[in-house]
């Protein structure tokens, strides 16, 4: 089936079986490889995207349900000032180690900050309960996303910095 939907603000088209995973469509047809496949079973949160503004696991979203919907991936989130800020805070606070979970963390945190600009540690832990990180022990992530006093030192205008989500 052919499906048209909006991805990161642009109208896109994809082709596939009705139960094709949105994750595969994003990575293989639309070349949006910022979204990572962790477990592929809906357990780890690495493939989180925003579906009509709500965090969803793209490995569990069938293509057939995407028609006419608004999808925002980590590429789209990180292109917004609020998303960029999350990325920089994670980098500055050591909230990234292997990086496999990071795109999902960025997208989920973005959705949380849209609803609650200054979440408590508990609210953050609740929001990120579905995003597994096996490297950081979460402390760097919590530090990055709860401590407003410690602003990142990475400049948003750093020349030559790769756009988030460009790496495989």
């Amino acid at each position: 089936m052919n499906v048209r939907f909006v991805v990161n603000g642009e109208e896109r088209e994809a082709e596939g079986a009705p139960l094709e995973r949105l994750l595969d469509v994003l990575r293989e047809q639309l070349a949006l490889t910022g979204t990572k496949e962790g477990c592929g079973e809906g357990e780890c949160g690495a493939c989180t995207v925003l579906l009509d503004g709500e965090p969803a696991l793209s490995c569990l979203v069938p293509l057939a349900q995407c028609a006419g919907r608004d999808v925002r991936t980590v590429e789209g989130v990180a292109a917004l000032p609020a998303g960029r800020r999350i990325v920089e805070r994670l980098v500055a606070a050591g909230g990234v180690q292997c990086g496999a979970c990071t795109p999902g963390i960025v997208v989920t945190a973005f959705a949380l900050f849209e609803r609650d600009p200054a979440p408590t540690r508990q609210a953050l832990a609740d929001a990120l309960a579905g995003n597994l990180c096996r490297c950081t022990g979460y402390e760097g992530i919590f530090r990055a996303l709860t401590d407003d006093a410690e602003q990142p030192t990475v400049s948003p205008a750093r020349p030559g910095a790769p756009a988030v989500g460009e790496a495989e």
Binding site: V3, R4, F5, A64, G68
Partner: peptide, 11 residues
Amino acid sequence: MTAAPGGTAAD
């Protein structure tokens, strides 16, 4: 939600 541009949304 964005208006359905096509695909199967209308279906």
